[in-house]
Design a protein around this nucleic acid. Structure first.
Length: 566
RNA sequence: CGGGGUGUGGCGCAGCCUGGUAGCGCACCUGCUUUGGGAGCAGGGAGUCGGAGGUUCAAAUCCUCUCACCCCGACCA
């Protein structure tokens, strides 16, 4: 392809409305342009990358025995009502009505549609297992779209749905998908990690997330420093700590802590560690208030809490509720004297004898508050996020925390959807059974962003070879020199004939501009043809990733490039 | 939705506090020179300052409302 014929609008400055590296670089390299918040157009170069990712995904899914289909993005409300998700999915579902006032949504995921298809068309165990996938645009009205393609409201996703006759079969399918995902992310060229995960809104019993390791990731991953254990921080199990020695603490006493609002401020003011403070958070779970206690240096994990309570809805209590329940202003809640609601403590709270707690009064704390003596705790449970140094749930070592970008997620759904939608087949005894399902997602467009996030330097993008928009960029330097252009064109044509994807930088720009744009675009190999080297029969080959430049005899340049591309 | 912030030629920004009719760099067009890491000179095109309303002789600038976008939190591929 000729550079001058492609729309590659590179930007010299960082765009004002981009913060993340991948977002900035994708805009600057002319891969994408914003249309509205979380909605982007893909320009020629961006689409080339996306297609490459798509094809890798497609090839591996096919190899794993899944069949490609295409389901509609526009879906009738009735199907969603069958599973109850028309109500449950909430505002994230893009809803619309047709001219007859019938309700529709733009699909954020396709369990309903595929289950409907399968229950109509698959009747016998003989057709099982069966696994369908599609690569399609999804719509989610995200609360806060951000970071360019990382979290859009419209994005490209590969979603697969498997149907098995029994749990055993479903587990095998799950395993096959798990392995296919490893291959996919390896081929795409990302450093990633599969971690245990919570299954969220989609539901189901077990699930793994595939995380691309990157500083800007929105997720936190807890992984063991010694063994193979790795889990989303939301999921990482923590066990009960040691019980404290039952030495008698001094009597509880109130102290004045004027203007000390944050945990840090109070711990500084009273000169106690944050760990010594007890945070009391009030939640409302399905209309019922609950108090939760965690140490000052820990964070509550709402997913765990929700699960423990078996609650459908869980939110922090609003100011009025706090006042009603604690008889004190919000922001000053403590466990002492709390009645009429359950008080649950995190396991770690158990391991210390006494705490500094809020007193349900402005500017006041209690010292030496002892659980069980000065306030009651109905039960202890695992309620917080793991932190660096927590014990690994599998071995003796401790946990470290990394950030990651979720690019894939596999779920064992079981019969959750097939039961609700009454999707059944006849087993070999002629008995009706519910399909055992699994579902498997990959954020195709997100992979693109994650790849940039993980592969860049101060000069621009450094594409992994497998998903680069082109394999090679040819940069002739004196475009007015006939010998230069002949040599460059010859190499260009020869490489094309070898099915290598080449971008020919034929713009009438200064050398510096060409070099800078080439580094920004991040095509893995640059072949630089200049008069000076040409006189010695040489061309220059630059590897974008390392910056290494070598001089190669003209006759060998095609061979050298081919070697590096394959 | 709560908190913080920004909207001025295509892009990045200044001007706003202390109202007086829009400026800088880059990009763009023409010509000449230049050409191994974002060129120089000369000439030129392009904005009514997110939108609406108000105050005023006069509004990018002050006031009110509104919209869009970005960042932090809850959601997720």
């Amino acid at each position: 392809m000729y550079y001058s014929k492609l729309l590659i609008p590179t930007l010299r400055d960082d765009p004002a409305d981009a913060e993340t590296i991948s977002h900035k670089l994708m805009l600057r390299a002319g891969l994408i342009r914003k249309v509205a918040s979380g909605i982007y157009s893909l320009l020629p170069l961006g689409l080339r990358v996306l297609s490459k990712v798509e094809n890798i995904v497609r090839e591996e899914m096919n190899k794993a025995g899944a069949q490609e289909i295409l389901l509609p993005a526009l879906q009738p409300a009735e199907l969603w009502e069958e599973t109850g998700r028309w109500d449950k999915y909430g505002k994230e579902l893009m809803r619309l009505t047709d001219r007859h006032d019938r309700n529709f949504c733009l699909g954020p995921t396709h369990e309903e549609v595929i289950t409907d298809l399968v229950r109509r068309e698959v009747k016998s165990y003989k057709t099982l297992p069966i696994n369908f996938y599609q690569i399609q645009t999804k719509f989610r009205d995200e609360i806060r779209p951000r970071f360019g393609l990382m979290r859009g409201r419209e994005f490209l996703m590969k979603d697969a749905y498997s149907f098995d006759a029994d749990l055993e079969g479903a587990k095998k399918t799950y395993q096959a998908m798990y392995e296919a995902y490893h291959k996919i992310f390896q081929r795409v060229g990302l450093r990633f990690r599969a971690v245990e995960a919570d299954s969220g809104l989609i539901g189901g019993s077990s699930s793994h997330e595939f995380m691309v390791l990157a500083q800007t990731g929105e997720d936190e991953i807890a992984s063991c420093e010694k063994c193979e254990y790795a889990a989303n921080i939301e999921r990482a199990e923590l066990t009960a700590g040691d019980l404290p020695s039952s030495e008698s603490a001094p009597k509880m006493e109130a102290v004045s802590t004027p203007e000390q609002k944050s945990v840090e401020a109070v711990s500084r003011f009273l000169d106690v560690s944050a760990n010594q403070l007890l945070k009391t958070l009030l939640f409302v779970a399905d209309e019922k208030p609950v108090a939760v206690l965690v140490c000052g240096d820990h964070e509550i994990n709402e997913v765990k809490l929700k699960k423990l309570l078996g609650a459908e809805a869980l939110a922090l209590a609003d100011h009025d509720t706090v006042k009603r329940v604690t008889n004190g202003p919000s922001g000053f809640s403590g466990p002492v004297g709390l009645t009429g609601l359950e008080i649950i403590g995190d396991f770690s709270v158990q391991s210390k004898a006494e705490y500094v707690v809020e007193a349900n009064k402005e500017d006041t704390h209690y010292l030496h508050a002892v659980p069980g003596r000065d306030f009651s705790v109905s039960r202890y449970a695992d309620l917080r996020n793991a932190v660096h140094g927590d014990p690994c749930p599998r071995c003796e070592a401790s946990i470290k925390i990394d950030r990651g970008i979720e690019v894939g997620h596999v779920f064992m759904l079981g019969t959750k959807y097939s039961e609700k939608m009454d999707a059944t087949f006849l087993d070999r005894n002629g008995k009706s059974q519910h399909f055992v399902m699994g579902c498997y997602g990959i954020g195709v467009s997100r992979i693109m962003a994650a790849a940039v996030e993980q592969n860049h330097d101060e000069r621009g993008i450094v594409w992994p070879q497998q998903i680069a928009p082109f394999d090679v960029e040819i940069i002739p330097i004196q475009e007015k020199s006939e010998v230069v252009m002949i040599a460059a064109t010859t190499i260009f044509e020869t490489l094309k004939r070898k099915n290598i994807e080449v971008l020919f930088e034929d713009r009438k720009e200064r050398t510096g501009v060409k070099f800078n744009d080439a580094d920004l675009l991040g095509i893995p190999i640059q072949v630089i043809i200049g008069q000076r080297n040409l006189e010695d029969g040489l061309a220059e080959l630059k590897e974008r990733k390392t910056g290494e430049k070598i001089l190669v005899p003209l006759d060998d340049i095609v061979k050298e490039v081919t070697k590096r591309c394959c």
